[in-house]
Nucleic acid binder design. Structure first.
Lengths: 344, 344
DNA sequence: ACCCGAAGTGGAACCGGTTCCACTTTTGTA
DNA sequence: TACAAAAGTGGAACCGGTTCCACTTCGGGT
């Protein structure tokens, strides 16, 4: 178990002072004669020297690290988002510290404290909705916060990257209305979240422009965790006048909902047309393949990182930025025109 | 944008020296009179003081951080593994820096360097197979390395946590043989990986104990990345005497393989019985639901973390540890007895 | 030949913790 | 009561970088 060389070792071996080595390490931090620069570079290479990140952070005041705070990685949406963000970050020489919240504000609060300890210079997060003051404090201490997918409205000056939730919900609803459906159920996220509200609005707007009444019983806002989606689906199917179409707009609950559909043996699309908000390739492999609203994860990740890095370099003007990216609607075989004399 | 308080601020406010505060922060590092301890705790709370991680690392020499190096998070296997590890780590107050390798040894090498810079005290990884000296150097510098799922044999003293690959492959092969199949195809990982080899051995052993010859053409060792699984499946189905059963033992290629099966419209299980090594809940939702070897991710994660943390505290004796956990075989409807007069 | 500014260099303080050590105050025991 | 051992405390060095500043050495303009 050897010991790694330090900047002073390098300086000694190259016959220069630590200042010079430091300047070689950080171009633009001062002049270095090119002969010495070469020698230093040679010695660095020879010794296999690498600057200790902790020391840099300590004197620099902040780390080349960002925090990524998501609900949990077993949700493919977040997993793929994380994948893209880590990838994108690496290409900018930034490391990612990962924390999961399990949708629990306490755990989230904890994570934020930890990230503060680590002096991260930015955080990309899908907030639970709580901890408003904590988020504010974070920003107050100079941490750049970017929310992805959801947001916290109370927080004035946070950047947000999300898909066009209103639009996506509206479009998919319109599509189903176009197929003749009038009883369209919507399973979506809690009304306490920006995402949940926007999707309900889109759904409602589509009804209104088709002069269709909205049956509030067909809208189910369910939590992100647990089996809530499946239960909602079960209860919808058990209604005296069940829906003929279903939109699952709670990404986290798609799997649970689909499982229930499969288990109850509802015929898709004959008995029920289905559209889900999901990004999971498996939706395509089911029979029938499910129609989906596909979230452009790459775009979300790229924009989120761009924002957080841009802020770190003070690139953008003061105000908060809201970036909405378009989500693709991929109609597949899980939707059919409404049969005039339904089998049931 | 305020500035966070330091240990000296706390010391001043509590009317004690920094040493005392430090001792309060780190119990067991020295005695503190309980009156002063209380006062210090009060001040810490009042000021919202939190020790800077970077400073600790710098003087302590190592960080309460581990590196997690996986191929990519879009693979649900790694995503869920990462999820469990992050979760498990948090409960021990350890942070996780995440790096992905895309199965590329260069990126892996890069990641290792970065983790070294960060003075992580441990690394949990699914190695690509290359970078043997680099891994050795890491250990040499006192970083505890634990491999999950795969291993690098050349590396003498690394801990390994994996599933019983040989056994799992053997069991699933035996199951198919028991159903009367004699031409069983195996799509698995590269022979350069421990996993790939073990699964082939298990597959072979099952054949031998049933006195069945192994047709080498039915064994396809394909890379983890890309569409190799799908291509292998395509080529298997195109054989003059195609297999009547298929085991997809390359977790990363399950999706690609299944996609190909669905696309070509092979009837499962009538034309082909299928078993896949996978952990994805979607396998259950397909029609027919796929028989799977389910990797007990929780166990892998828990053991890996236990090992790495245990090493950090010098808990275990010197030698490397190999932990193999049992993988469940879940027979579902994608396997059927061999029809005596096949339809094709 | 002379002076001024820019380039190049090294010394030393600093970032915020931990830890060793010397010193003072208790405490316990003979 | 006396004195050694234990408890409690603060000062200062240290971890490994960055950065400010003072200093030397050039080169160029007049």
């Amino acid at each position: 178990m050897k010991k790694a060389p330090t900047i002073r070792d390098v300086a000694a071996a190259a016959g220069v002072s630590v200042s010079v080595v430091s300047r070689v390490l950080n171009p633009d931090s001062g002049p270095v004669a090119s002969a010495k620069r070469q020698e230093v570079v040679r010695v660095i290479d020879e010794l296999g020297y690498r600057p200790r990140a902790a020391a840099r952070e300590l004197s620099g005041g902040h780390a080349l690290t960002i925090g990524l705070v998501v609900t949990d990685l077993s949700n493919p949406f977040f997993a793929r988002l994380a994948d893209r963000i880590v990838w994108e970050a690496r290409s900018h020489g930034v490391q990612v510290v990962l924390m999961t919240t399990q949708e629990d504000p306490h755990l989230e609060a904890d994570s934020l404290d930890t990230l503060l300890d680590r002096s991260v210079s930015g955080v990309i997060a899908t907030p639970t909705g709580g901890n408003v003051e904590k988020w504010a404090r974070l920003q107050d201490l100079g941490v750049n916060v970017v929310f992805v997918d959801r947001t916290i409205e109370e927080l004035g000056d946070a950047d947000v990257v999300s898909i066009e939730n209103f639009d996506s919900a509206q479009r998919s609803t319109e599509y189903l209305i176009g197929l003749g459906h009038t009883r369209i159920a919507l399973v979506t996220g809690p009304r306490s979240t920006s995402t949940g509200r926007a999707r309900i609005s889109g759904y409602t707007a589509a009804h209104e422009s088709a002069s269709l009444a909205v049956d509030p019983l067909l809208i189910r806002d369910v939590p992100f965790r647990g089996d809530a989606g499946g239960d909602a689906v079960g209860s919808l199917l058990a209604m005296p006048q069940p829906p003929t179409a279903l939109i699952v707009g709670n990404t986290a609950q798609v799997q649970s909902s689909v499982r229930r559909l499969v288990q109850t043996g509802v015929r898709i699309p004959d008995d029920l047309s289905v559209i889900v908000f999901d990004d999971n390739p498996w939706t395509e492999l089911m029979s029938p393949p499910l129609s989906v609203i596909r979230q452009p994860l790459d775009m979300l990740a790229v924009h989120a990182l761009e924002l957080v890095l841009g802020r770190m370099q003070g690139k953008f003007p003061e105000g908060p930025r809201l970036i909405e990216v378009k989500a693709d609607f991929l109609p597949r075989n899980s939707c059919a025109p409404l049969a005039h004399a339904p089998a049931r």
